[in-house]
Design a protein around this nucleic acid. Structure first.
Lengths: 333, 333
DNA sequence: CTGAAAGCGCTAACAG
DNA sequence: CTGTTAGCGCTTTCAG
C-alpha cells in the first residue's frame, strides 16, 4: 500500500505539501503541485480514508435508519438518499430497525462509534430523547414524518391530513356514497394524521359511522383482512380510502377475490404513490407523496448540515398530489 | 469524548491494559480487569471504531453492490445481508450500480479506500478483472449469479436452467399446449440460463417456434410490452413462462387489460419468488429462488472469509422450487 | 501479568 | 510557498 509518505518522497516534498494538493487547501507552488500530481499518478496513490477520518473526524458516510428496506416506500426513499449521497461524495449505511426501539438504540451507538457524519431517521421508533442524544453528540440528523415541533433538527414530512381529505373528496366526487377507511397503526404519526384527515372529510355525513374505520397495519395482509370484516358490517360501502398503498393493494386483492369489480362496485384510493401502485390491474388511484424527493431533500439537508451550512428551514412539509388512475371512477365533468 | 487514556487513568493502569480487556486479548489480572471494566462503566466509555480500524485494518463494515435497491429481488437480498451482518457485528453499505460499469468501478475504488472488510457483488456489470483486482487488494468478495468457473471467490447461484425446465413442465402438465417465454436481457447470465432451460424443455415439440421467445428486459414494463406483440403473432399461446417475476407481473397486467382470464385463457409462471408475487390477483405461480437464504449465505461466507476462515466450497448452487399458485391451473390428478 | 512506545496514514497548526 | 511536528485513538510488539 502506497502512502502519502511515498508520494512525498517521490515528489521530493514534504507530506504536508502532498496533503495540501490533495485537499486543495493552503498555498502550493504551481510547479510543485504538478510534481506532486505526477507522483500521485505514477504511484497510483489513493489516500486512506480511515486515516483521514481519524485526523479530521469526518468519515464521508451517512446512515439511514428505516423500518424495513423491503417495504417499497423505504426502498425508494433509500434509493433517493443513496443517489444524492453519492453525488455529494458520501457513502451510505442502511439499517433495518423493524421499528424496534432496542435495535434503533443499538444502531445509534454503533454509528456514533463509527464517527458517522450524519443520520437520516425514517424509522418510527425514535423518540425525542434520541434526538437530544444526537444533538449532544453533535451528530447532524434529519428525521422523516415527525410532528412539527421543537425538535432541534430538520424534519421532512408531507401533508398527510390534507392528502387524506383530498382522497375522500375525490371518492365522493366520483360518485361514492359511503366511504370506509383502512387505517395504519395508531402509534404512527402518519397514520394518525391520515385518519384525522379522513375524519375531517367525512364529518357531518349521515352515513358515517365509527365502524367504517378498520385497522390494516400498513401492510398488504392487513389490507386484505380489513376488507372482509368491513364488507360484512357495511355491505353498501362503495369507496375505500386506504392509509397507504400496501393496504390498498391488499384490499384490491381481497375485493377481486370476492368478485367485486374495481372501480365499478367499489372505488379504492391509496396513499404514498409507491411505484408498485402502478403495477396492479387496475392501477391504483393514490395520494402520492414525492417519495424520491423526500429522500433527496433529506440527504441534501443532512449534507448541508454536515458541511456546517446553516440551514434556514427546519421543517419541510412537502405537497402531496392526487394521482387519478383506474381504481376510482372517472370524474364526471 | 472519553478515550482509552481516560479509562486507563481512572483505572490506574496503562492504555495497553485497557486495550487488552477491551479485546479480550493477552493476559490481564482478574482484579485489574474488574477495575478497568468499572472505569469503562463509570465513564460510559465507547472505543472509537475509526481509530481501531486504522490500527488493525478492519472496519467492521461490508458493502453490497446491487443494480437497484428498489428492485424487490435486491431489496430482499439486501435485507438478508443486513440481518446477517448485524448478527455478526458488521454494518453494511449499499451501492446502486444500475449495472453501470463505471459506477461500479467508482464504488470499488471508494470502498477500497475506506478499508471496507468485504464486498458482496449482486451487480451484473462486474467483470473477471474486477475479481482479480479485489484479490490483489486482498479484499474478500462473494458474487451472485456468476457462471461456475475459476473465479477465485465464492459464488452463490441458483439452478436457473433446471428451474426454467420445471416451469415449462408445470405449464404443460397443467394443460398448456403452446408456451411462450418472455426473456431477460441477453447479457445477464441468469437470463441466459433460464432461456436455455426453456429451450431444452420445449425442444422437439412441433408447436415451438423461435418467435415464441420475446424480450422483456426483466422489468414490469418490459413484460407488459412483450405480451401484445406475442399474442398478435401467436393468438393461440396458452402458457407463458416469464424469466422473472417482474415481467410476469407486467404480463399479467397486460393480459388482464386485454380481457384474458388468468389462468383460464392463459397460464403464467414467473421466476424468483419475490414477496410481491403473492400480491397480485391471481397470485403468481413462480419458480422460487431462496432469495433471503442467498443473501444470508452470501453474508455468512463473506464474514467467514473476512475472519480468515478457510471456506471449503467455492460455488454454492441453491435449489429452486415450484410454488404453485393461481396463475396456472391446478394439476389434474 | 503489565507498561512504554512505536506505529496505522493523514491533517493542521506553527515556523520559516 | 513549504517543511516539521504533534496529534487523531487504538493496537501491538517488546521489555520487564
Amino acid at each position: 500500500m502506497t502512502t502519502i509518505r511515498d508520494v512525498a518522497a517521490r515528489a521530493g516534498v514534504s507530506v504536508a505539501t502532498v496533503s495540501r494538493v490533495l485537499n486543495g487547501s493552503g498555498y502550493v507552488g504551481k510547479d510543485t503541485e504538478i510534481r506532486v500530481k505526477k507522483a500521485i499518478q505514477e504511484l497510483n496513490y489513493r489516500p486512506n480514508t480511515v486515516a483521514r477520518s481519524l485526523a479530521n473526524r469526518k468519515t464521508g458516510t451517512i446512515a439511514v435508519i428505516l423500518p424495513d428496506i423491503m417495504n417499497p416506500f423505504f426502498s425508494e426513499l433509500a434509493r433517493a438518499v443513496e443517489d444524492t449521497a453519492r453525488d455529494g461524495g458520501f457513502t451510505v449505511i442502511f439499517c433495518n430497525s423493524d421499528d424496534l426501539g432496542t435495535r434503533e438504540q443499538h444502531y445509534i451507538e454503533v454509528l456514533r462509534q463509527k464517527y458517522i457524519d450524519g443520520i437520516i431517521f425514517a424509522s418510527n421508533s425514535m423518540g425525542e430523547d434520541d434526538i437530544v442524544y444526537m444533538n449532544e453528540n453533535r451528530i447532524p440528523i434529519v428525521v422523516l414524518d415527525r410532528a412539527p415541533g421543537k425538535s432541534g433538527c430538520t424534519v421532512i414530512r408531507s401533508q398527510n391530513a390534507a392528502g387524506a381529505v383530498m382522497a375522500v373528496r375525490h371518492l365522493m366526487e366520483t360518485g361514492c356514497r359511503k366511504i370506509a377507511h383502512i387505517a395504519g397503526p395508531g402509534e404512527l404519526i402518519t397514520a394518525q394524521e391520515r385518519l384525522r384527515g379522513y375524519r375531517k372529510a367525512v364529518k357531518g355525513f349521515t352515513w358515517f359511522d365509527e365502524s367504517l374505520i378498520v385497522p390494516g397495519h400498513f401492510s398488504i395482509r392487513g389490507g386484505e383482512r380489513a376488507v372482509s370484516g368491513l364488507l360484512e358490517r357495511h355491505p353498501d360501502v362503495d369507496g375505500i380510502f386506504a392509509g397507504n398503498d400496501l393496504m390498498a393493494i391488499g384490499a384490491l386483492k381481497a375485493l377481486q377475490r370476492m368478485g367485486r369489480k374495481i372501480p365499478r362496485d367499489i372505488s379504492l384510493c391509496g396513499f404514498d404513490g409507491v411505484e408498485m401502485s402502478e403495477w396492479t390491474e387496475p392501477e391504483l388511484t393514490t395520494i402520492a407523496q414525492p417519495i424520491y424527493e423526500m429522500g433527496r431533500k433529506a440527504a441534501t439537508h443532512l449534507i448541508a448540515r454536515i458541511r456546517g451550512k446553516a440551514v434556514k428551514e427546519d421543517i419541510l412539509e412537502l405537497d402531496v398530489r392526487l394521482v387519478e388512475r383506474n381504481s376510482t371512477r372517472r370524474r364526471k365533468n
